[in-house]
């Protein structure tokens, strides 16, 4: 039996909003450690990895590890039926062919129950090496979202370069070009507004903005986003997931293969 209860059901709604347009079908791996998912987009250009720790749930029971394969747009449609303040409980019996979602409204007697069909998916699992990166940048997630959205007006790709204590996002296209330069901020008065840059070596690399704009759909999950870059390896864009108390619940990590020079 698998059962996971989340009083802040909105977190699960936000997670699905952040992945459903990138990946159609994926499997949740549920174990005593928690729920995790790893999937590539259909073009195999990017990969998303989600982790929700067992102790972040308000109740978590997983008698034996289960793989819950599902259509994420179906799951997302069902989660739209839950209110933002609802408690969400996921339930799956061992060897069942569906997952049950129970939504409970706060301070009300209303509960609703939905079922989503499970699928047997042929998932490829990729091993991601834990390597140090040349550049790590932490910045406000809304700023990253804005930069990606603005630069997609100009071109299809962004060139990210980092030198000393600044990071530069540049795009060019038929209409012209645009650049956004961010410098490390000095004060830590409001940590969520800060930009911090740690650089081992300068870097310059290009990425498709279409994917970065998909990743930015995770913005409501976290006030800060972390970018990690090294020469000739995928970019990592990470949003940590915290609950209202600020406790660490897990993360969404997106990996994006670079573009090579035209």
């Amino acid at each position: 039996m698998f059962e996971a209860k989340l009083i802040q059901g909105a977190i699960l709604k936000k997670i699905l909003d952040a992945i459903k347009d990138l990946v159609n079908e994926a499997s949740w791996d549920c174990s005593s450690q928690g729920m995790s998912l790893q999937a590539m987009d259909t073009s195999h250009v990017s990969l998303v990895a989600v982790q929700m720790k067992a102790d972040g749930f308000d109740k978590y029971r997983c008698d034996r590890s289960v793989t819950l394969g599902m259509n994420l747009s179906s799951l997302s449609k069902i989660l739209k039926c839950a209110g933002n303040d609802d408690t969400i409980t996921l339930k799956a019996p061992d060897d069942g062919d569906k997952i049950t979602l129970v939504f409970e409204a706060k301070n009300e007697s209303e509960t609703s129950e939905y079922e989503v069909k499970l699928m047997n998916l042929d998932s490829e699992y990729l091993g991601i090496p834990d390597t140090p990166y040349s550049v790590n940048v932490k910045m406000p997630s809304h700023k990253f979202q804005r930069i990606c959205r603005d630069l997609q007006q100009i071109g299809d790709a962004v060139t990210i370069s980092c030198a000393k204590d600044s990071i530069r996002f540049a795009a060019k296209g038929d209409l012209g070009s645009g650049t956004v330069n961010l410098c490390q901020t000095a004060s830590a008065d409001k940590p969520e507004d800060s930009v911090s840059i740690s650089m081992q070596e300068p870097i310059i690399q290009s990425f498709a903005l279409k994917y970065l704009n998909h990743f930015a759909k995770a913005t409501p999950l976290s006030p800060q986003v972390s970018l990690s870059l090294s020469p000739d390896v995928p970019l990592v864009v990470e949003y940590s997931i915290t609950d209202d108390d600020g406790s660490d619940f897990g993360y969404i990590r997106y990996y994006l293969a670079p573009k090579i020079d035209e």
Binding site: M40, V45, E124, L126, P234, P258
Partner: peptide, 14 residues
């Protein structure tokens, strides 16, 4: 897009 690399070039299948 011939300039776009694929993600599975970088990570090994488990």
């Amino acid at each position: 897009d011939k300039y776009q690399l694929k993600i599975d070039q970088f990570f090994k299948k488990m």
